[in-house]
Design a protein around this nucleic acid. Sequence first.
DNA 1: CTGTTAGCGCGTTCAC
DNA 2: GTGAACGCGCTAACAG
Lengths: 331, 331
Amino acid sequence: MSKITMKEIAKLANVSQPTVSRIINGNGDVNDEMAKRVRKVIEDVGYIPNKAAQTLKRSQSHIIGVCVTQMYNPYFVDLIDALEQKLHEMGYSIILHNSRHNPITEWENIQNFMARQVDGIIIVPTGTNNLSRISKLRIPTVVITQNNKYFDSVGINYMQAGRIAGQYFINGGHHKFGFIGHFPDEKFSGFESILYENNYKFEQKNYIKLDVSSTNNFLIRQDIEKYFNQIEHIDFTCAITTNDIAAIEFMRAAQERNIKIPGDISLIGFDDTLLSKILGITSIHQPIEKMVETTVEILWNRIDDKISSDLIHLQLEPTLVERTSSMRKKK
Amino acid sequence: MSKITMKEIAKLANVSQPTVSRIINGNGDVNDEMAKRVRKVIEDVGYIPNKAAQTLKRSQSHIIGVCVTQMYNPYFVDLIDALEQKLHEMGYSIILHNSRHNPITEWENIQNFMARQVDGIIIVPTGTNNLSRISKLRIPTVVITQNNKYFDSVGINYMQAGRIAGQYFINGGHHKFGFIGHFPDEKFSGFESILYENNYKFEQKNYIKLDVSSTNNFLIRQDIEKYFNQIEHIDFTCAITTNDIAAIEFMRAAQERNIKIPGDISLIGFDDTLLSKILGITSIHQPIEKMVETTVEILWNRIDDKISSDLIHLQLEPTLVERTSSMRKKK
DNA sequence: CTGTTAGCGCGTTCAC
DNA sequence: GTGAACGCGCTAACAG
């Protein structure tokens, strides 16, 4: 069955094809009786306008390209889900791509977005590899979950997140601190700075370094095991992790070594995903709803060319959600 | 900056526009020197063909519409991720929609897919509400994760899944069985049947019924709490759950009541998501890679009109992954 | 208010 | 081998 076109609707209703267009889009006044007749035909045959043709004509697709670096961490999934919902409400669709931390795939995805005439791009970049190329495309783009110099960006105040966690530990009476994550990391800088301000020092040997490409449980676990195997004993009583997955894997690795959490080590995760909720891990919450809302708003304004060309860099405030993983036995 | 068109490429290379088209698509022979010149221009200006125009002309978009019912359960995310990867390899993009278990939203999504001229649809249906309407659209459609009479479908043998779990418990010496899930459920039917065949009986009071709309941890937990509050004591020593989230929430609710898992109750989850992996919950594994592969293959053949019109209903075989949640202390 | 005309960017005849 | 002409389905500018 070949698809039905506007022209055929016109013929069935004995009107011209542009008249049908007017009725559908509400442009220009149309005779009521005529409109009613046309609408009935549309209803009867289940006609749906061809958006490829509309895109071609209007040069806007009402599609937003979304490209993330992974879907393993539930945090990104929450993000995608919220984006889909918000954009759906606004009459937009999303084309979803996953770069899997691969810059080459990322560039393919961007090219595809361009070919598809997307109205805008929301991206979690793999790094800085493609950024200059993307900016040359002059397509409205917002970087999300990261702060970025070259594009509008919506993230959270990672520095502050690190500080909140650090302050929490200091208040809890800790003075030996650990960090589990990639390098470099703004969270870590914030963490280190608040320690410094309180006359504590972060010892480099307590930095459990994860590989950049360690995105799933297994790989992160390997990195952690490696750490455990090369040290004699753990020299910190509290630690923050770069995300909830790392927190979980650290917790499991610790359990196997009879290290109690929070008894021996007080732990704070990151992202406040369902993982931390389920396992009772204290975690830094990111306001996903708000991030998505502002991201879409910025993009919307850029598409409409309504705002000045000054880039916007939004840093939302993180909050700490306390759960059992960080609670010391005696207070 | 208005986008560059094929016509402009043609002008820059001193050839006609159809020639550029031929070079790009490899249709018809073109003078080598000419081709080289044109390719250089394309490269230099970063020209990307407009897929909206191609879609209009070729009446195929190379887009697959994917509509799921939720993204809270990591199982569906794994599915989406695998689909994106596979389809990307084949030169397809996906438009992702979430119906959130709402048939009205689902229908909107389908309509949008049609408007976007998708080449095919992959769907986890909300129920039977829209199925007949969808089949009237005559768009290649595969139902995934469910067995379905009206469409090609790729799921797993849920009946068998229930039987595997049941057999496992029987082998473990259990004779009082519980089930946590929605009604009706093929897994349950399988579970019940294997019990019956072994002269055991499933007691209805041990069916912890979840609401159809209970999709997240909180709601599922509420249903479970309700059950606990209305019974005097638990009368089963083992149970299977409809998915891993239900398993987790049952486990947590049990913990709070000092019911030991697996000590007092042996538990089997469903989907083998990262949740069960992390928490050591025995779970029924679904071969996602294989599901996606066959789904795409079926869709591909339907699009190419290569297969007979007989519907295909594939049921892949589930396997049980044993972890600690089902291991009895003494064997 | 309505129909006629043109053109979005591309692929595909069809002549040369 | 190559260019001129046409049309995919739709919106917009123009007459009437």
